[in-house]
Design a protein around this nucleic acid. Sequence first.
DNA 1: AGGGCATGTGTGTTCGGACACAAAATATTT
DNA 2: AAATATTTTGTGTCCGAACACACATGCCCT
Lengths: 351, 351
Amino acid sequence: MAQHLTIKQIATLAGVSAGTVDRVLHNRGKVSEEALAAIQAVLKDQSYRYNLHSSAIAFKKTGKVWNIVITIPFSKKGEYWDLIKSGIDQALAEYGDFSLKIEYVFFDQFNSNSCRETFEKIKKMDCSAVIIGTTFVEETQNLCKGLDKKGIPYFFVDGKVTDTKPKAAFMANQTACGRLLARLMDGFVADDAEIAVLLPKRIGTQLSNNSAIRLASFRNYFKEKSRDSAVKEFSFSADNEKKAGEEISAFLKENPAVKGIAVVISTAYLISGAVEKSGFKGICVGGFDATEGNSRCIREGSLDFIINQHPDKQGFNAVEATLHYLLYGTTDSSADELMPIDIVFKENLIP
Amino acid sequence: MAQHLTIKQIATLAGVSAGTVDRVLHNRGKVSEEALAAIQAVLKDQSYRYNLHSSAIAFKKTGKVWNIVITIPFSKKGEYWDLIKSGIDQALAEYGDFSLKIEYVFFDQFNSNSCRETFEKIKKMDCSAVIIGTTFVEETQNLCKGLDKKGIPYFFVDGKVTDTKPKAAFMANQTACGRLLARLMDGFVADDAEIAVLLPKRIGTQLSNNSAIRLASFRNYFKEKSRDSAVKEFSFSADNEKKAGEEISAFLKENPAVKGIAVVISTAYLISGAVEKSGFKGICVGGFDATEGNSRCIREGSLDFIINQHPDKQGFNAVEATLHYLLYGTTDSSADELMPIDIVFKENLIP
DNA sequence: AGGGCATGTGTGTTCGGACACAAAATATTT
DNA sequence: AAATATTTTGTGTCCGAACACACATGCCCT
């Protein structure tokens, strides 16, 4: 176990004092070129790593407070974005020694105006870092431009957006998600049956980026397998339980050959519940993410499986990375951090 | 974010000095009944939580070294027990600030004499804690009795053993594992086909506890579904690649209706490779754990899926719990810690 | 009463890092 | 050249916990 150098050791090696080394490491300036060179020479030889434990307790003494703004869509308890939020809250508990002051700013994920207005407000806020749930592309790009100008670092959860420079982005590989859903449906549904892929019906907005990728990847799998003709696309009212139920019932009545339902968003429970109530048997239903509704339906047996992209972990890691950046000015994670993708059946559901 | 009390704050509240509080928390004795009562009164009101960060740096000053003995079966690189080992090594790196000196003592998991001899040696060793990979029941019970006598704490990975008192045991729910395997096979294999469940053929030893539970649970699922008649048990030479290949080829020739192969141990790659080479098509093969061999076969497509019980996480958590116990004399984990169970297909394999 | 001897108790030092502040070295002005 | 301003550097203090050590206090015995 190679022990790491301490600041004092580096200071001795470079022939300067600990304070000077500290200034170099933190880019606090006020260091002569000679001292800088001497220290960098030592650092080249033996790389230094901060001791988070020491940072943590030393930090308390400073009385510093970091304001972190987190802007994500609002959602009901146990729904997708709330899972991200609980991961964030978990991280706050774990890193409680660093006083991170969090301000949540929620917006409506189905309303670009709400998003734009919210983001305008954030641009005027004074904070140390921003964590952004990626939804509307243009609005996000605009916000990021504003943050770049003010030198405020930002991090993404749930996706990434072109022409922006987040310090890191935490998300799942959506292509893999879509393919996996297809693979499972392909396996579970008899070869001569049809498979429905369900999208949200959203008036006035296009399909979100993630869902679109999943859908394309899903269809692509079946094209490769020459089974694409068995796939039926169907849009349902994802924001209205009653309506969604009626729509899927009608759909199944008209399409009796459908024996598999793949829902590309996180509200599969709206569908699976209705399918069971309507008395259709032997239909395999799969969806995304271990939201409360989905978990309940898996437990009860109406939903067969979900693909979990760990929204909580995304939130947790985003806070962790933000803290790391604020402390040390670097992210040791690469810009894109892919979450593991799990498959959850009743048998391996965590209660 | 409710900040936690520090030792000094407790001392002030209880009207004693920090040193006395420290003695109480660490059960170091030398505390009068009055002082003890006063401190406990404060602790009852506001529960104290150690600050791991402070413990970490304060620990360095002590120069103390903890010797932890880890006794698990030896295995080739990338095989099951080696995955547990890498989780352990990861934990050692993460907790490098606490100088944990690890001594691995390996034994032969197929030879109870090797196990007994190894355990006898361990009983004579002087160490702070022992992490035990559970294999042979009687030998483990014997070792634990010896450790209990010397007051040395021990932890289990991969299972538990009756009549022992480990501080914690890290494992997956084997019943769930078996059921999940069955569920996936049931779904992926056509209703009119047969399914083989593969066990290791071991001369002179009975089936390991974990495999036995998985098998029973697997069969149980099919009994519930009244599909048990389609299940064929088959034993293969799990320690000999060539032999295993020949055995499964012969078996499939004799049983052409078999379209699913469920391997209840971690060497499914021995089977899937042979099945592909022998030219059998449309056979679904599933197994356990993301060993190197299994991961390779999943990537190449011969193995359809594995159920991952996170041996690395088991190892990691065991070290973490050991450290926690040595530092604070408690495990905040309950005695049995169940690992999450993941399902891994080609699409969600982590490279 | 005073010398042991145990048992309690408080204080001081340290771990590695973060800064504040004072001190030293250098540069600039009068 | 002296006075002042500016840059650079070193030192000291503290964060919370761990423990060594010295300082009590009480008790028994000669």
